[in-house]
Design a protein around this nucleic acid. Structure first.
Lengths: 257, 257
DNA sequence: GAAAGAGAATTTGTCTGACAATAGGACAAC
DNA sequence: GTTGTCCTATTGTCAGACAAATTCTCTTTC
Protein backbone atom coordinates (compact mmCIF):
# COMPACT_ATOMS: atom_id res chain seq x y z
CA UNK A 1 0.00 0.00 0.00
CA UNK A 2 2.16 2.82 1.28
CA UNK A 3 5.29 2.90 -0.81
CA UNK A 4 8.25 4.84 0.48
CA UNK A 5 8.31 8.20 -1.14
CA UNK A 6 11.60 9.58 -2.32
CA UNK A 7 12.30 13.27 -2.20
CA UNK A 8 12.25 14.45 -5.79
CA UNK A 9 15.33 16.53 -5.22
CA UNK A 10 17.38 13.44 -4.55
CA UNK A 11 16.28 11.67 -7.66
CA UNK A 12 19.25 13.10 -9.46
CA UNK A 13 21.67 10.87 -7.66
CA UNK A 14 19.30 7.98 -7.21
CA UNK A 15 18.46 7.11 -10.73
CA UNK A 16 19.40 3.51 -10.17
CA UNK A 17 16.02 2.16 -9.30
CA UNK A 18 12.90 3.19 -11.12
CA UNK A 19 9.91 2.92 -8.86
CA UNK A 20 8.29 0.14 -10.81
CA UNK A 21 4.85 -0.85 -9.67
CA UNK A 22 5.16 -4.00 -7.64
CA UNK A 23 3.79 -7.15 -9.13
CA UNK A 24 0.51 -8.31 -7.71
CA UNK A 25 1.98 -11.27 -5.91
CA UNK A 26 4.48 -8.98 -4.21
CA UNK A 27 1.72 -6.71 -2.98
CA UNK A 28 -0.23 -9.61 -1.60
CA UNK A 29 2.92 -11.03 -0.02
CA UNK A 30 3.73 -7.68 1.56
CA UNK A 31 0.25 -7.28 2.96
CA UNK A 32 0.15 -10.71 4.52
CA UNK A 33 3.67 -10.36 5.82
CA UNK A 34 2.81 -7.09 7.53
CA UNK A 35 -0.29 -8.59 9.07
CA UNK A 36 1.79 -11.38 10.53
CA UNK A 37 4.46 -8.97 11.73
CA UNK A 38 1.88 -6.73 13.37
CA UNK A 39 0.28 -9.68 15.09
CA UNK A 40 -3.05 -9.45 13.29
CA UNK A 41 -2.32 -13.01 12.28
CA UNK A 42 -0.90 -14.80 15.26
CA UNK A 43 1.12 -18.01 15.30
CA UNK A 44 -1.18 -20.97 14.87
CA UNK A 45 -3.83 -18.92 13.10
CA UNK A 46 -5.19 -20.23 9.87
CA UNK A 47 -5.09 -17.91 6.90
CA UNK A 48 -8.22 -17.42 4.82
CA UNK A 49 -8.49 -19.85 1.95
CA UNK A 50 -6.72 -19.06 -1.28
CA UNK A 51 -10.07 -18.49 -2.91
CA UNK A 52 -11.14 -16.05 -0.21
CA UNK A 53 -7.82 -14.22 -0.33
CA UNK A 54 -8.07 -13.94 -4.07
CA UNK A 55 -11.52 -12.41 -3.83
CA UNK A 56 -10.47 -10.09 -0.98
CA UNK A 57 -7.46 -8.78 -2.88
CA UNK A 58 -9.19 -8.86 -6.23
CA UNK A 59 -6.63 -11.14 -7.81
CA UNK A 60 -6.58 -14.65 -9.16
CA UNK A 61 -5.72 -17.70 -7.16
CA UNK A 62 -2.43 -18.05 -9.00
CA UNK A 63 -1.27 -14.73 -7.61
CA UNK A 64 -2.27 -15.70 -4.10
CA UNK A 65 -0.46 -18.99 -4.44
CA UNK A 66 2.70 -17.23 -5.51
CA UNK A 67 2.54 -14.92 -2.51
CA UNK A 68 1.96 -17.88 -0.23
CA UNK A 69 4.87 -19.72 -1.79
CA UNK A 70 7.06 -16.83 -0.81
CA UNK A 71 5.73 -16.73 2.73
CA UNK A 72 6.49 -20.43 2.96
CA UNK A 73 10.01 -19.80 1.73
CA UNK A 74 10.34 -17.10 4.37
CA UNK A 75 9.39 -19.66 6.97
CA UNK A 76 6.45 -17.57 8.13
CA UNK A 77 3.68 -19.98 7.26
CA UNK A 78 3.24 -23.59 6.33
CA UNK A 79 0.49 -25.17 4.28
CA UNK A 80 -1.28 -28.49 4.64
CA UNK A 81 -3.10 -29.86 1.67
CA UNK A 82 -6.76 -30.21 2.43
CA UNK A 83 -6.48 -28.20 5.59
CA UNK A 84 -5.18 -24.73 4.95
CA UNK A 85 -2.25 -22.40 5.53
CA UNK A 86 -1.10 -21.66 9.06
CA UNK A 87 1.18 -19.11 10.65
CA UNK A 88 4.04 -21.12 12.12
CA UNK A 89 4.04 -21.49 15.89
CA UNK A 90 7.70 -20.93 16.60
CA UNK A 91 10.10 -20.34 13.76
CA UNK A 92 13.03 -22.69 14.16
CA UNK A 93 15.33 -20.02 12.84
CA UNK A 94 15.37 -16.31 13.08
CA UNK A 95 16.98 -14.24 10.41
CA UNK A 96 18.71 -10.94 10.42
CA UNK A 97 18.60 -9.66 6.90
CA UNK A 98 20.72 -6.77 5.76
CA UNK A 99 19.78 -5.21 2.50
CA UNK A 100 22.67 -4.10 0.42
CA UNK A 101 22.66 -1.16 -1.87
CA UNK A 102 19.56 0.52 -0.51
CA UNK A 103 21.12 3.78 0.57
CA UNK A 104 24.19 5.69 -0.38
CA UNK A 105 27.11 3.33 -0.60
CA UNK A 106 29.31 5.48 1.56
CA UNK A 107 26.76 5.93 4.33
CA UNK A 108 26.12 2.24 4.29
CA UNK A 109 29.77 1.37 4.51
CA UNK A 110 30.28 3.86 7.32
CA UNK A 111 27.42 2.42 9.33
CA UNK A 112 28.66 -1.11 8.87
CA UNK A 113 32.18 -0.06 9.88
CA UNK A 114 30.80 1.59 12.95
CA UNK A 115 28.89 -1.51 13.93
CA UNK A 116 31.93 -3.66 13.33
CA UNK A 117 34.03 -1.38 15.49
CA UNK A 118 31.52 -1.59 18.31
CA UNK A 119 31.30 -5.34 18.15
CA UNK A 120 34.92 -6.14 17.48
CA UNK A 121 36.14 -3.82 20.18
CA UNK A 122 34.27 -5.89 22.71
CA UNK A 123 35.25 -9.08 20.93
CA UNK A 124 38.92 -8.21 21.22
CA UNK A 125 38.55 -7.57 24.92
CA UNK A 126 36.84 -10.86 25.54
CA UNK A 127 39.24 -12.71 23.26
CA UNK A 128 42.15 -11.37 25.28
CA UNK A 129 40.57 -12.79 28.41
CA UNK A 130 39.66 -16.18 27.04
CA UNK A 131 42.04 -17.12 24.25
CA UNK A 132 43.81 -20.43 24.52
CA UNK A 133 46.77 -21.82 22.58
CA UNK A 134 44.62 -23.15 19.77
CA UNK A 135 42.99 -19.77 19.24
CA UNK A 136 46.32 -17.98 19.07
CA UNK A 137 47.61 -20.57 16.65
CA UNK A 138 44.66 -20.05 14.33
CA UNK A 139 45.08 -16.30 14.42
CA UNK A 140 48.81 -16.59 13.79
CA UNK A 141 48.13 -18.82 10.80
CA UNK A 142 45.97 -16.26 9.07
CA UNK A 143 48.47 -13.56 9.92
CA UNK A 144 51.10 -15.63 8.14
CA UNK A 145 48.83 -16.09 5.17
CA UNK A 146 48.50 -12.36 4.87
CA UNK A 147 52.27 -12.03 4.96
CA UNK A 148 52.56 -14.58 2.17
CA UNK A 149 49.95 -12.81 0.11
CA UNK A 150 51.76 -9.50 0.58
CA UNK A 151 55.04 -11.08 -0.49
CA UNK A 152 53.39 -12.26 -3.68
CA UNK A 153 51.51 -8.99 -4.09
CA UNK A 154 48.44 -11.19 -4.05
CA UNK A 155 45.01 -10.59 -2.60
CA UNK A 156 45.03 -10.94 1.14
CA UNK A 157 41.45 -9.97 1.83
CA UNK A 158 40.37 -13.51 2.52
CA UNK A 159 43.12 -14.06 5.08
CA UNK A 160 42.16 -10.72 6.56
CA UNK A 161 38.57 -11.82 6.98
CA UNK A 162 39.69 -15.12 8.44
CA UNK A 163 41.87 -13.39 10.99
CA UNK A 164 38.89 -11.50 12.33
CA UNK A 165 36.83 -14.66 12.44
CA UNK A 166 39.59 -16.48 14.31
CA UNK A 167 39.70 -13.66 16.84
CA UNK A 168 35.97 -14.01 17.36
CA UNK A 169 36.45 -17.73 17.84
CA UNK A 170 38.71 -16.95 20.79
CA UNK A 171 35.68 -15.65 22.69
CA UNK A 172 34.39 -19.23 22.76
CA UNK A 173 30.90 -17.94 22.14
CA UNK A 174 29.37 -19.32 18.98
CA UNK A 175 26.91 -16.48 18.66
CA UNK A 176 29.72 -13.98 18.68
CA UNK A 177 31.58 -15.98 16.06
CA UNK A 178 28.62 -16.14 13.79
CA UNK A 179 27.88 -12.46 14.13
CA UNK A 180 31.45 -11.44 13.35
CA UNK A 181 31.54 -13.77 10.39
CA UNK A 182 28.28 -12.31 9.18
CA UNK A 183 29.43 -8.72 9.51
CA UNK A 184 32.71 -9.53 7.81
CA UNK A 185 30.96 -11.15 4.91
CA UNK A 186 28.59 -8.25 4.57
CA UNK A 187 31.51 -5.88 4.56
CA UNK A 188 33.34 -7.93 1.95
CA UNK A 189 30.31 -7.85 -0.28
CA UNK A 190 29.91 -4.13 0.16
CA UNK A 191 33.55 -3.71 -0.71
CA UNK A 192 33.09 -5.65 -3.91
CA UNK A 193 29.90 -3.75 -4.63
CA UNK A 194 31.52 -0.36 -4.26
CA UNK A 195 34.29 -1.38 -6.59
CA UNK A 196 31.91 -2.67 -9.20
CA UNK A 197 32.95 -6.24 -8.97
CA UNK A 198 36.60 -5.70 -9.67
CA UNK A 199 38.79 -7.76 -7.41
CA UNK A 200 41.12 -5.46 -5.59
CA UNK A 201 43.89 -5.90 -3.15
CA UNK A 202 43.88 -4.28 0.21
CA UNK A 203 45.04 -0.73 0.28
CA UNK A 204 48.25 -0.26 2.24
CA UNK A 205 48.50 -3.87 3.32
CA UNK A 206 51.62 -3.23 5.38
CA UNK A 207 49.75 -0.78 7.52
CA UNK A 208 46.83 -3.15 8.04
CA UNK A 209 49.24 -5.94 8.84
CA UNK A 210 50.99 -3.80 11.43
CA UNK A 211 47.63 -3.19 13.11
CA UNK A 212 46.82 -6.88 13.00
CA UNK A 213 50.13 -7.69 14.65
CA UNK A 214 49.51 -5.22 17.46
CA UNK A 215 46.04 -6.62 17.98
CA UNK A 216 47.33 -10.17 17.99
CA UNK A 217 50.03 -9.38 20.52
CA UNK A 218 47.64 -7.61 22.85
CA UNK A 219 45.36 -10.63 22.79
CA UNK A 220 48.36 -12.88 23.23
CA UNK A 221 49.41 -11.00 26.32
CA UNK A 222 45.86 -11.12 27.60
CA UNK A 223 45.70 -7.37 27.85
CA UNK A 224 42.02 -6.72 27.27
CA UNK A 225 42.17 -2.96 27.34
CA UNK A 226 45.02 -2.84 24.85
CA UNK A 227 43.27 -5.37 22.64
CA UNK A 228 40.22 -3.19 22.58
CA UNK A 229 42.22 -0.13 21.63
CA UNK A 230 44.06 -2.05 18.92
CA UNK A 231 40.81 -3.36 17.47
CA UNK A 232 39.32 0.12 17.38
CA UNK A 233 42.49 1.53 15.85
CA UNK A 234 42.44 -1.18 13.23
CA UNK A 235 38.82 -0.67 12.30
CA UNK A 236 39.36 3.07 12.13
CA UNK A 237 42.44 2.49 10.02
CA UNK A 238 40.63 0.20 7.63
CA UNK A 239 37.79 2.67 7.33
CA UNK A 240 40.29 5.44 6.69
CA UNK A 241 41.84 3.46 3.85
CA UNK A 242 38.39 3.39 2.32
CA UNK A 243 38.14 7.13 2.66
CA UNK A 244 35.71 6.89 5.53
CA UNK A 245 36.14 8.80 8.74
CA UNK A 246 34.50 7.13 11.69
CA UNK A 247 32.95 9.63 14.06
CA UNK A 248 32.96 6.90 16.62
CA UNK A 249 34.23 7.66 20.08
CA UNK A 250 34.46 4.52 22.12
CA UNK A 251 37.93 4.94 23.56
CA UNK A 252 37.92 4.58 27.28
CA UNK A 253 40.40 7.33 28.06
CA UNK A 254 38.74 10.05 26.05
CA UNK A 255 35.24 9.05 27.06
CA UNK A 256 36.16 8.85 30.70
CA UNK A 257 38.30 11.97 30.64
CA UNK B 1 -14.50 -32.77 27.70
CA UNK B 2 -11.70 -34.86 29.13
CA UNK B 3 -9.06 -34.92 26.48
CA UNK B 4 -7.59 -38.38 26.18
CA UNK B 5 -4.06 -37.86 27.29
CA UNK B 6 -2.05 -40.51 25.61
CA UNK B 7 1.62 -40.61 26.42
CA UNK B 8 2.96 -40.53 22.92
CA UNK B 9 6.40 -40.27 24.38
CA UNK B 10 6.17 -43.82 25.65
CA UNK B 11 6.05 -45.13 22.16
CA UNK B 12 9.52 -43.79 22.01
CA UNK B 13 11.59 -43.26 18.97
CA UNK B 14 10.08 -46.16 17.09
CA UNK B 15 7.51 -43.83 15.68
CA UNK B 16 9.37 -41.60 13.33
CA UNK B 17 7.52 -39.24 11.15
CA UNK B 18 6.44 -40.70 7.88
CA UNK B 19 8.38 -38.96 5.19
CA UNK B 20 5.79 -37.85 2.78
CA UNK B 21 6.77 -37.47 -0.82
CA UNK B 22 7.85 -33.93 -1.50
CA UNK B 23 5.53 -31.82 -3.53
CA UNK B 24 6.50 -31.33 -7.12
CA UNK B 25 7.40 -27.69 -6.69
CA UNK B 26 9.74 -28.60 -3.85
CA UNK B 27 11.53 -31.14 -6.01
CA UNK B 28 11.96 -28.66 -8.82
CA UNK B 29 13.13 -26.02 -6.35
CA UNK B 30 15.64 -28.43 -4.84
CA UNK B 31 17.02 -29.40 -8.21
CA UNK B 32 17.49 -25.84 -9.38
CA UNK B 33 18.92 -24.79 -6.05
CA UNK B 34 21.50 -27.57 -6.19
CA UNK B 35 22.47 -26.63 -9.71
CA UNK B 36 23.07 -23.06 -8.61
CA UNK B 37 24.99 -24.16 -5.51
CA UNK B 38 27.17 -26.49 -7.58
CA UNK B 39 27.90 -23.76 -10.07
CA UNK B 40 26.19 -25.43 -13.00
CA UNK B 41 24.19 -22.24 -13.14
CA UNK B 42 26.53 -19.36 -12.55
CA UNK B 43 25.64 -15.80 -11.48
CA UNK B 44 24.33 -13.92 -14.45
CA UNK B 45 23.21 -17.06 -16.25
CA UNK B 46 19.72 -17.21 -17.59
CA UNK B 47 17.56 -20.12 -16.58
CA UNK B 48 15.67 -22.03 -19.25
CA UNK B 49 12.19 -20.67 -19.88
CA UNK B 50 9.38 -21.77 -17.64
CA UNK B 51 7.93 -23.72 -20.52
CA UNK B 52 11.20 -25.52 -21.16
CA UNK B 53 11.68 -26.28 -17.47
CA UNK B 54 8.17 -27.64 -17.25
CA UNK B 55 8.79 -29.97 -20.16
CA UNK B 56 12.18 -31.01 -18.84
CA UNK B 57 10.84 -31.87 -15.40
CA UNK B 58 7.57 -33.19 -16.74
CA UNK B 59 5.45 -30.81 -14.71
CA UNK B 60 3.12 -27.96 -15.44
CA UNK B 61 4.15 -24.36 -15.67
CA UNK B 62 2.38 -23.60 -12.40
CA UNK B 63 4.72 -25.93 -10.55
CA UNK B 64 7.75 -24.36 -12.17
CA UNK B 65 6.51 -20.92 -11.28
CA UNK B 66 6.05 -21.91 -7.65
CA UNK B 67 9.59 -23.26 -7.50
CA UNK B 68 10.89 -20.08 -9.08
CA UNK B 69 8.91 -17.98 -6.61
CA UNK B 70 10.74 -19.73 -3.84
CA UNK B 71 14.12 -19.22 -5.46
CA UNK B 72 13.26 -15.55 -5.75
CA UNK B 73 12.33 -15.44 -2.08
CA UNK B 74 15.66 -17.08 -1.30
CA UNK B 75 17.34 -14.28 -3.21
CA UNK B 76 19.04 -16.72 -5.55
CA UNK B 77 17.43 -15.58 -8.78
CA UNK B 78 15.46 -12.66 -10.10
CA UNK B 79 13.03 -12.57 -12.96
CA UNK B 80 12.37 -9.94 -15.56
CA UNK B 81 9.13 -10.00 -17.41
CA UNK B 82 9.68 -10.57 -21.10
CA UNK B 83 13.31 -11.42 -20.56
CA UNK B 84 13.71 -14.42 -18.31
CA UNK B 85 14.99 -15.57 -14.94
CA UNK B 86 18.60 -14.94 -13.99
CA UNK B 87 20.89 -16.15 -11.27
CA UNK B 88 21.71 -13.06 -9.23
CA UNK B 89 25.21 -11.64 -9.56
CA UNK B 90 25.65 -10.75 -5.93
CA UNK B 91 22.87 -11.45 -3.49
CA UNK B 92 21.31 -8.19 -2.38
CA UNK B 93 20.58 -9.57 1.04
CA UNK B 94 22.68 -11.53 3.41
CA UNK B 95 21.22 -13.45 6.26
CA UNK B 96 22.40 -14.14 9.74
CA UNK B 97 20.55 -17.19 10.90
CA UNK B 98 20.47 -18.25 14.51
CA UNK B 99 19.18 -21.70 15.19
CA UNK B 100 17.14 -22.01 18.29
CA UNK B 101 17.06 -24.97 20.58
CA UNK B 102 20.10 -26.74 19.21
CA UNK B 103 22.24 -26.77 22.32
CA UNK B 104 21.51 -26.67 25.99
CA UNK B 105 18.98 -23.98 26.65
CA UNK B 106 20.97 -22.48 29.45
CA UNK B 107 24.22 -22.36 27.49
CA UNK B 108 22.39 -20.83 24.60
CA UNK B 109 20.78 -18.20 26.77
CA UNK B 110 24.10 -17.40 28.42
CA UNK B 111 25.82 -16.93 25.08
CA UNK B 112 23.06 -14.73 23.80
CA UNK B 113 23.17 -12.64 26.97
CA UNK B 114 26.89 -12.28 26.63
CA UNK B 115 26.57 -11.10 23.06
CA UNK B 116 23.85 -8.68 24.02
CA UNK B 117 26.00 -7.30 26.80
CA UNK B 118 28.89 -6.75 24.43
CA UNK B 119 26.75 -5.05 21.84
CA UNK B 120 24.52 -3.04 24.12
CA UNK B 121 27.41 -1.80 26.22
CA UNK B 122 28.81 -0.15 23.13
CA UNK B 123 25.35 0.91 22.03
CA UNK B 124 24.75 2.68 25.32
CA UNK B 125 28.01 4.56 24.97
CA UNK B 126 27.23 5.70 21.48
CA UNK B 127 23.65 6.52 22.37
CA UNK B 128 24.88 8.78 25.18
CA UNK B 129 26.98 10.66 22.67
CA UNK B 130 24.40 11.00 19.94
CA UNK B 131 20.95 11.03 21.48
CA UNK B 132 18.63 13.89 20.64
CA UNK B 133 15.39 14.99 22.20
CA UNK B 134 13.32 12.66 20.10
CA UNK B 135 15.36 9.65 21.13
CA UNK B 136 15.05 10.48 24.81
CA UNK B 137 11.35 10.97 24.43
CA UNK B 138 10.94 7.56 22.85
CA UNK B 139 12.96 5.90 25.59
CA UNK B 140 11.00 7.74 28.29
CA UNK B 141 7.76 6.57 26.71
CA UNK B 142 8.66 2.90 26.96
CA UNK B 143 9.93 3.46 30.48
CA UNK B 144 6.52 4.85 31.34
CA UNK B 145 4.83 1.87 29.73
CA UNK B 146 6.82 -0.42 31.96
CA UNK B 147 5.75 1.58 34.98
CA UNK B 148 2.14 1.27 33.91
CA UNK B 149 2.50 -2.45 33.37
CA UNK B 150 4.04 -2.83 36.80
CA UNK B 151 1.22 -0.86 38.38
CA UNK B 152 -1.26 -3.24 36.78
CA UNK B 153 0.92 -6.26 37.53
CA UNK B 154 0.82 -6.81 33.80
CA UNK B 155 3.43 -8.10 31.44
CA UNK B 156 6.05 -5.46 30.74
CA UNK B 157 8.34 -7.54 28.58
CA UNK B 158 7.29 -5.87 25.38
CA UNK B 159 7.92 -2.40 26.77
CA UNK B 160 11.24 -3.71 28.01
CA UNK B 161 12.20 -4.87 24.54
CA UNK B 162 11.05 -1.60 23.07
CA UNK B 163 13.16 0.39 25.49
CA UNK B 164 16.27 -1.40 24.30
CA UNK B 165 15.30 -0.84 20.69
CA UNK B 166 14.71 2.85 21.35
CA UNK B 167 18.14 3.10 22.92
CA UNK B 168 19.66 1.52 19.84
CA UNK B 169 17.77 4.04 17.72
CA UNK B 170 19.61 6.81 19.54
CA UNK B 171 22.84 5.69 17.87
CA UNK B 172 21.34 6.85 14.56
CA UNK B 173 22.85 3.85 12.86
CA UNK B 174 20.25 1.66 11.20
CA UNK B 175 22.47 -1.40 11.24
CA UNK B 176 22.89 -1.11 14.98
CA UNK B 177 19.16 -0.74 15.42
CA UNK B 178 18.41 -3.79 13.38
CA UNK B 179 20.99 -5.88 15.16
CA UNK B 180 19.71 -4.93 18.61
CA UNK B 181 16.16 -5.60 17.55
CA UNK B 182 17.22 -8.94 16.19
CA UNK B 183 19.06 -9.96 19.34
CA UNK B 184 16.18 -8.82 21.50
CA UNK B 185 13.72 -10.83 19.48
CA UNK B 186 15.91 -13.87 19.62
CA UNK B 187 16.19 -13.49 23.36
CA UNK B 188 12.44 -13.10 23.73
CA UNK B 189 11.91 -16.26 21.77
CA UNK B 190 14.41 -18.16 23.87
CA UNK B 191 12.71 -16.87 26.97
CA UNK B 192 9.37 -18.20 25.77
CA UNK B 193 10.99 -21.43 24.72
CA UNK B 194 12.58 -22.06 28.09
CA UNK B 195 9.27 -21.46 29.81
CA UNK B 196 7.40 -23.78 27.52
CA UNK B 197 5.20 -21.19 25.97
CA UNK B 198 3.74 -19.85 29.18
CA UNK B 199 3.60 -16.13 29.20
CA UNK B 200 5.41 -14.85 32.22
CA UNK B 201 6.01 -11.50 33.75
CA UNK B 202 9.44 -10.17 34.32
CA UNK B 203 11.07 -11.33 37.49
CA UNK B 204 11.68 -8.52 39.96
CA UNK B 205 10.39 -5.81 37.66
CA UNK B 206 11.19 -3.06 40.14
CA UNK B 207 14.84 -3.99 40.02
CA UNK B 208 14.91 -4.07 36.23
CA UNK B 209 13.11 -0.77 36.14
CA UNK B 210 15.65 0.80 38.50
CA UNK B 211 18.41 -0.31 36.16
CA UNK B 212 16.54 1.08 33.19
CA UNK B 213 16.17 4.41 34.93
CA UNK B 214 19.86 4.59 35.70
CA UNK B 215 20.69 3.73 32.11
CA UNK B 216 18.27 6.29 30.79
CA UNK B 217 19.64 9.02 32.99
CA UNK B 218 23.22 8.30 32.05
CA UNK B 219 22.28 8.55 28.38
CA UNK B 220 20.29 11.67 29.13
CA UNK B 221 23.29 13.31 30.75
CA UNK B 222 25.45 12.23 27.83
CA UNK B 223 27.78 10.35 30.11
CA UNK B 224 29.02 7.59 27.83
CA UNK B 225 31.11 5.76 30.38
CA UNK B 226 28.31 5.68 32.91
CA UNK B 227 25.86 4.56 30.25
CA UNK B 228 28.12 1.69 29.38
CA UNK B 229 28.40 0.62 32.99
CA UNK B 230 24.65 0.86 33.46
CA UNK B 231 23.98 -1.21 30.35
CA UNK B 232 26.39 -3.89 31.50
CA UNK B 233 24.90 -3.86 34.99
CA UNK B 234 21.44 -4.17 33.54
CA UNK B 235 22.31 -7.07 31.27
CA UNK B 236 24.09 -8.80 34.11
CA UNK B 237 21.10 -8.17 36.33
CA UNK B 238 18.65 -9.52 33.78
CA UNK B 239 20.82 -12.59 33.28
CA UNK B 240 21.00 -13.06 37.04
CA UNK B 241 17.22 -12.99 37.28
CA UNK B 242 17.24 -15.88 34.84
CA UNK B 243 19.67 -17.73 37.03
CA UNK B 244 22.54 -17.10 34.68
CA UNK B 245 25.86 -15.77 35.83
CA UNK B 246 27.73 -13.89 33.16
CA UNK B 247 31.45 -14.51 33.30
CA UNK B 248 31.84 -11.43 31.22
CA UNK B 249 34.40 -8.87 32.23
CA UNK B 250 34.11 -5.78 30.10
CA UNK B 251 34.19 -3.14 32.79
CA UNK B 252 36.76 -0.57 32.08
CA UNK B 253 38.02 -0.10 35.60
CA UNK B 254 38.62 -3.73 36.39
CA UNK B 255 40.08 -4.52 33.00
CA UNK B 256 42.37 -1.55 33.06
CA UNK B 257 43.28 -1.95 36.69
C1' DG C 1 27.34 1.88 -43.50
C1' DA C 2 25.20 3.42 -39.20
C1' DA C 3 21.51 4.94 -36.48
C1' DA C 4 16.65 4.97 -35.66
C1' DG C 5 12.13 3.14 -35.76
C1' DA C 6 8.36 -0.29 -36.56
C1' DG C 7 6.92 -4.84 -36.05
C1' DA C 8 7.29 -9.73 -34.88
C1' DA C 9 8.71 -13.20 -31.67
C1' DT C 10 9.77 -14.54 -27.06
C1' DT C 11 9.07 -14.70 -22.17
C1' DT C 12 7.18 -13.72 -17.77
C1' DG C 13 2.79 -12.11 -15.37
C1' DT C 14 -2.07 -12.96 -14.72
C1' DC C 15 -6.61 -15.02 -15.39
C1' DT C 16 -9.87 -18.89 -15.73
C1' DG C 17 -11.63 -23.39 -15.14
C1' DA C 18 -10.96 -27.99 -14.07
C1' DC C 19 -9.52 -32.24 -11.62
C1' DA C 20 -6.57 -34.85 -8.03
C1' DA C 21 -5.06 -35.48 -3.29
C1' DT C 22 -5.61 -34.68 1.36
C1' DA C 23 -7.92 -33.40 5.75
C1' DG C 24 -11.76 -32.99 8.80
C1' DG C 25 -16.45 -33.36 10.24
C1' DA C 26 -21.04 -35.77 10.13
C1' DC C 27 -23.25 -39.87 10.59
C1' DA C 28 -24.46 -44.54 10.68
C1' DA C 29 -23.02 -49.32 12.15
C1' DC C 30 -20.93 -52.19 15.42
C1' DG D 1 -17.30 -45.38 22.70
C1' DT D 2 -15.11 -46.89 18.61
C1' DT D 3 -14.80 -47.75 13.74
C1' DG D 4 -15.68 -47.14 9.03
C1' DT D 5 -17.77 -44.46 5.30
C1' DC D 6 -19.32 -40.51 2.92
C1' DC D 7 -19.35 -35.68 1.96
C1' DT D 8 -17.29 -31.31 1.80
C1' DA D 9 -13.66 -27.91 2.06
C1' DT D 10 -8.98 -26.83 0.82
C1' DT D 11 -4.53 -27.13 -1.22
C1' DG D 12 -1.80 -29.22 -5.17
C1' DT D 13 -1.53 -29.76 -10.10
C1' DC D 14 -2.84 -29.34 -14.83
C1' DA D 15 -4.13 -26.97 -19.25
C1' DG D 16 -5.00 -23.12 -22.12
C1' DA D 17 -5.44 -18.35 -22.92
C1' DC D 18 -4.37 -13.40 -22.97
C1' DA D 19 -1.66 -9.18 -21.15
C1' DA D 20 2.67 -6.85 -20.50
C1' DA D 21 7.38 -6.38 -21.08
C1' DT D 22 11.57 -7.35 -23.43
C1' DT D 23 14.48 -8.66 -27.30
C1' DC D 24 15.40 -9.50 -31.94
C1' DT D 25 14.85 -8.43 -36.83
C1' DC D 26 13.97 -5.99 -40.56
C1' DT D 27 13.14 -1.74 -42.75
C1' DT D 28 13.75 3.01 -43.24
C1' DT D 29 16.36 7.08 -43.17
C1' DC D 30 20.36 9.86 -43.05
Amino acid sequence: MSATHFPIAELGTELSRIDRPLHLSEKVWGDLQRRIARGELKPGDRLPTEKALGEAFGVSRAVVREAIARLKADGLIETRQGSGAFVVEAPKTINLRFWKGVGSELDELRDIFELRAMVEGAVAELAAQRRDKKDLKAMAKHLQEMDDAMARSADGTEADDNFHIAMAGATHNSYVSRLVEFLGRHFSDSRKLSWHGTRRQLAHPQEAQREHRALFEAISRGNAEAARRCALDHLRGTAGRFGIKLSLDLDRDSAAG
